[in-house]
């Protein structure tokens, strides 16, 4: 889908200048991000750090006790296996517990996408664009290493890095295939659950990478949107009847989110959007373009409202 560019205003010019963004990006934020001033201010602050407990190896209570003894201050979140970190006397990626695979440094938003996948033991799961493996290892722990996970990752470097994470976390039910998502059909397999955390423009992680305030252009959003439309169609073709596809991105752009899901709804009549509890409702309209009413079942996570990285999640059930 072509990137839509709302007209500029004095407000967007002033905000773009104050926070160092390209103006076209702020023009767009004003059209789809609630409470933009608070949002832009939040993006200037260090984001909350989260760790996800690897229940293949320990429990949240036990890990909280161990890291607490080292001076970490951890807090429960909406997900039982995810803890937020308010005080860390050392890097969270350098503790013995981390090296032993007892936890994974992972944002709450990305864990929410796995939570929406509704994984059970002894099922078949496909994880598209899987590296570095945070979501894959979380799926594996929810499955208690039963069933099977096929993780697709086209990049050899990223696949290698992912293999270290799978090993560290003690995952034994997963294999990595060096394929792109569009090649799923060649495998001739179908799955109970498919996770497509699609490559995106990463608007949601600006707080972690400030270069993104000015490093991408409207054409990049369009490029991602087109790629995502072909990926979601391929992913949908791999879901068994009764199965679930979770589509997610770390972008706020409607062209990369609601428009992509809407493109699938227009192609397939056997799919419905299931509600997700946490987050703000997905958009049903953007710049005069209408999306399906059920798009309000999808979820947008905003840093200033939900204390996560910016994220979008849609849970799709197939008849």
């Amino acid at each position: 889908m072509k990137t839509l560019l709302p007209p500029g205003s004095d407000e967007s010019r002033e905000l773009a200048k104050r926070y160092g963004y390209d103006q076209w990006l702020v023009d767009r934020f004003l059209a789809y991000v609630p409470e933009v001033q608070e949002f832009l201010a939040k993006m200037e602050r260090i984001p909350t750090q989260y760790i996800r407990v690897n229940t293949l190896k320990t429990s949240p209570e036990e890990l909280q006790k161990r890291l607490g003894a080292k001076g970490f201050v951890l807090h429960p979140t909406r997900l039982a296996e995810v803890l937020s970190v308010s005080v860390s006397p050392m890097s969270v990626g350098a503790t013995t517990e981390y090296l032993l695979g007892q936890y994974y440094v992972q944002d709450l938003s990305s864990c929410m996408a796995v939570d929406a996948l509704d994984v059970k033991e002894n099922i078949q799961v496909l994880d598209i664009a899987a590296a570095p493996g945070g979501k894959t290892t979380m799926i594996a722990q929810k499955m208690q290493n039963t069933g099977s996970i096929i993780a697709l990752e086209p990049s050899a470097v990223r696949a290698r890095s992912m293999s270290f994470n799978l090993a560290r976390c003690g995952v034994s039910n997963t294999c990595i295939l060096q394929h792109s998502g569009e090649e799923i059909g060649k495998l001739g397999l179908t799955f109970d659950r498919v996770l497509l955390d699609a490559p995106c423009s990463c608007e949601g992680v600006i707080a972690k990478d400030m270069t993104r305030k000015t490093s991408h252009e409207p054409a990049d959003v369009e490029f991602c949107s087109n790629k995502q439309e072909s990926l979601i169609a391929a992913a949908a073709a791999a879901v068994k009847p009764g199965g679930v596809l979770v589509y997610s991105t770390c972008s706020f752009a409607p062209e990369e989110n609601e428009a992509v899901v809407n493109s699938l709804l227009q192609k397939r009549t056997d799919v419905s959007i299931e509600p997700i509890e946490f987050g703000a409702s997905g958009l049903t309209e953007f710049q005069g373009i209408m999306f399906a009413e059920s798009m309000n079942n999808t979820r947008r996570l905003y840093p200033h409202l939900h204390d996560t990285t910016g994220f979008y999640i849609a849970k799709l059930r197939f008849d």
Partner: peptide
């Protein structure tokens, strides 16, 4: 399928 990596070594 001869994957690049599988299971736990």
């Amino acid at each position: 399928f001869e994957p690049e990596y599988a299971g736990l070594v």
